[in-house]
Nucleic acid binder design. Structure first.
Length: 331
DNA sequence: AACTTGTCCAACCGCACTGAA
DNA sequence: CTTCAGTGCGGTTGGACAAGT
């Protein structure tokens, strides 16, 4: 590959002027070297790690390679509908804070989410002649895009149910899985998956956080948050209720590291986010896993398929867009 | 078949922040 | 207080590949 050979202007990375640093794509040998070294010595101290491991790479490059690609818990493959929905919601709250958004999509890297946003979302904004940060486009996402995502999730869930029923080894899910989004206007939007994997959407007051909810709060409406990045700090991770929280339970306003661990072990219930994001939990629901992947196949195209995505912007939607002030020349 | 255009995403850069010396 | 190495983050680039002409 004829990768560019840019001069390294970053002082922090010129840790060895005499050693020619490699750039560009990583080789299999380099990957193995890095993996083995981290397996034996752990990660961190990336510059010294790179030297000690004998890698002719900057520490920064090693860190990036590890975090974005080699880490065992990196989840690869298409962004699922649920993840798309979550990305849209979280981006509405935080904007381009990719690393923060990525914290709530286990296995996904900030780079991956960023790429998704740039290649999918911004593209559609461009098609609509909207600025991606404009109120018009945000309204479009909220009133058109996200509801349609929910519809598709619901439709796919129905497919799951049908398919599962048709087989003898249908899953015996009993856990109600839900995501509760706390909006900026002190309301909540709950996406509930019932026992039959039907999805219901409820709007309500911020205080109506119920059991089995997967909740997070935006800084503006978090009663206990202490900074602009704060989350609901009450512990939704009470296993007795199978709650899952993406908010933290500390004062650092960072999510709990165990937020996607299996909840409610006493009855084998698994959180919704486990179902959709945790590779380890995928195996518990093989049917769901299969169908979440199938959502991204051409038979259910939407965002991933530009040719059919255009169908989404039908006359009705375009009329609504115009009413919202988007889709025309009003940038 | 050849060329062009579009999409995806790994990898890079610059900057900001943090903590140790 | 200042300096600096280490780290993390967001923005950008460009190669590989697919789709279209």
């Amino acid at each position: 590959m004829d990768m560019k050979r840019r001069l390294n202007n970053n002082n922090n990375d010129n840790n060895d002027d005499d050693m020619e640093l490699r750039r560009g794509p990583w080789t299999v040998d380099e990957d193995l070297t890095l993996i083995n070294y981290i397996a034996n010595h752990g990660e961190g101290r990336w510059n010294s790690l790179a030297r000690s491991a004998g890698l002719k790479r900057t520490g920064k490059s090693c860190r990036l390679r590890w975090l974005n690609y080699l880490r065992p818990d990196v989840r690869r493959g298409n962004i699922t509908l649920e993840e798309q929905l979550l990305i849209l919601e979280l981006h509405a709250s935080w904007g381009n804070r990719w690393s923060k958004i990525a914290q709530y999509l286990p296995g996904r890297t900030d780079n991956e989410i960023k790429n998704y946003w740039r290649t999918r979302v911004q593209k559609h904004a461009k098609q609509l002649k909207c600025d991606v940060n404009s109120k018009q486009f945000k309204d479009t996402m909220r009133f058109l895009w996200m509801p349609r995502l929910v519809e598709r999730i619901q439709a796919a869930a129905a497919t799951v149910t049908t398919a599962a029923t048709a087989t003898s080894d249908s899953p015996t899910l009993s856990a109600t899985k839900s995501v509760t989004i706390i909006n900026n206007n002190n309301t909540t939007t709950a996406y509930n998956f019932d026992n039959l994997n039907n999805l219901e959407v409820h709007s309500g007051n911020i205080m109506n956080m119920s059991n089995n909810n997967f909740g997070y709060a935006t800084p503006e409406n978090s009663s206990t948050g202490t900074s602009s990045d704060s989350f609901v700090t009450q512990d939704y991770c009470n296993n007795n209720n199978n709650n899952v929280h993406v908010g933290n339970n500390n004062n650092n306003n960072e999510p709990s590291s165990d937020y996607y661990h299996q909840q409610g072990n006493n009855n084998n219930q698994v959180s919704f986010m486990d179902c959709i994001t945790s590779p380890s939990s995928m195996s518990l629901f093989p049917h769901q896993e299969m169908d979440f992947q199938a959502m991204e196949l051409p038979n259910t195209p939407w965002i991933n398929n530009p040719s059919t995505f255009s169908n989404f912007w039908n006359d009705e939607n375009m009329l609504l867009l115009q009413n919202l002030g988007c889709g025309g020349d009003n940038m």
